[in-house]
């Protein structure tokens, strides 16, 4: 069996502050096989986004951050790579999509210019014309009907949904093997969110891109992910295939999380305990879904 696209083992993160060390991640482990779509679900502040940033190597360069544990990307230990080698992976082998697509695009450049810059990462020296041709094809893939017009537009002239699709096209333009989606489309309304999710799902399937999908929206996760990790206060509390986890949540926190979703049929906002000793119960792993080659 080949190395998984992403392997995180016992990852700890702390921030050094005047008051001493502030532990944010208490040893989380997760893995994503090639082409697999994995979701990381948890409430605000549970450590979802910092995990993504560690994978991209953005946290390690902060002076106050203390990172320990193993992060392997395609079998290579990120901690052993030089800054230069890690830099080379970003934007080519791994890329990222953000919450708010409109602010993720620079307002002073046209889409064409920004697309060119993205493509330059993957194929240095690519010409304007060639970049434009590939951009048109990529925008076509994300169901943008007038790619030429969109390419000559500025981000603020396009709708949020359009920008989101442009972002997806850009993120996949260099054929990365890992796409990190940090709560994509949270800033968009639900119909647009649904469209872009379907698009992203189809595209990543076609390109065999592995996805680390970070979200607090359980409905979205259920539709999108093959496998699910539930994270609570810097600890993974439960993991397993999406369907099984939704049908039969075994960890107290997962159960609370699922109950917390307001029903479309009404019945008021559910009352859930904010914090409970039970939430710190040990990790629940489904049989056969542990890290490959390791017990558990």
């Amino acid at each position: 069996m080949s190395a998984p696209t992403l392997l995180i083992r016992d990852l700890k993160l702390g921030f050094r502050s005047y008051a001493g060390m502030l532990e944010v991640l208490h040893g989380i482990s997760l893995h994503i096989a090639k082409g697999e779509r994995v979701a990381l679900v948890g409430e605000s502040g549970s450590g979802k986004s910092v995990t993504a940033r560690i994978v991209l190597g953005l946290i390690q360069s902060l002076r106050s951050a203390r990172v320990s544990g193993l992060v392997e990307f395609e079998g290579r230990d990120l901690a052993k790579l030089s800054e230069r080698e890690r830099h080379a992976l970003r934007g080519t082998r791994m890329s990222m999509i953000f919450q708010d697509p409109t602010s993720s695009l620079n307002p002073v450049y046209t889409i064409a210019t920004q697309f060119h810059e993205v493509l330059l990462r993957g194929s240095p020296g690519i010409s304007q014309a060639e970049a434009r041709r590939r951009a048109v094809a990529a925008l076509d893939d994300v169901a943008i009907s007038e790619p030429e017009r969109v390419l000559d537009s500025y981000p603020f002239q396009l709708s949020g949904g359009m920008n989101q699709r442009v972002m997806i096209a850009m993120a996949l333009a260099n054929e990365p093997s890992l796409l990190i989606a940090d709560e994509p489309g949270t800033a968009l309304d639900v119909t647009v969110q649904a469209q872009t999710l379907t698009l992203m799902r189809d595209l990543t399937e076609r390109h065999h891109t592995a996805v680390l999908f970070i979200s607090h929206n359980l409905g979205v996760v259920r539709e999108f992910a093959d496998r699910l990790y539930v994270i609570y206060k810097g600890r993974i509390v439960e993991q397993g295939p999406t369907a099984a986890l939704f049908d039969d949540p075994r960890h107290p926190y997962t159960r609370a999380l699922l109950q917390a979703v307001p029903r479309i049929t009404g019945g008021g906002i559910p009352e859930i305990e904010d914090a409970s000793e039970a939430y710190f119960a040990p990790l629940v792993v489904r049989e056969g879904f542990g890290e490959p080659g390791r017990a558990g």
Binding site: L58, A88, R90, Q99, S104
Partner: peptide, 13 residues
């Protein structure tokens, strides 16, 4: 603090 700065850093600018 704008998103495009983070986006640029992420793709390795």
């Amino acid at each position: 603090e704008e998103g495009y700065v983070l986006a640029a850093e992420v793709i390795g600018a």
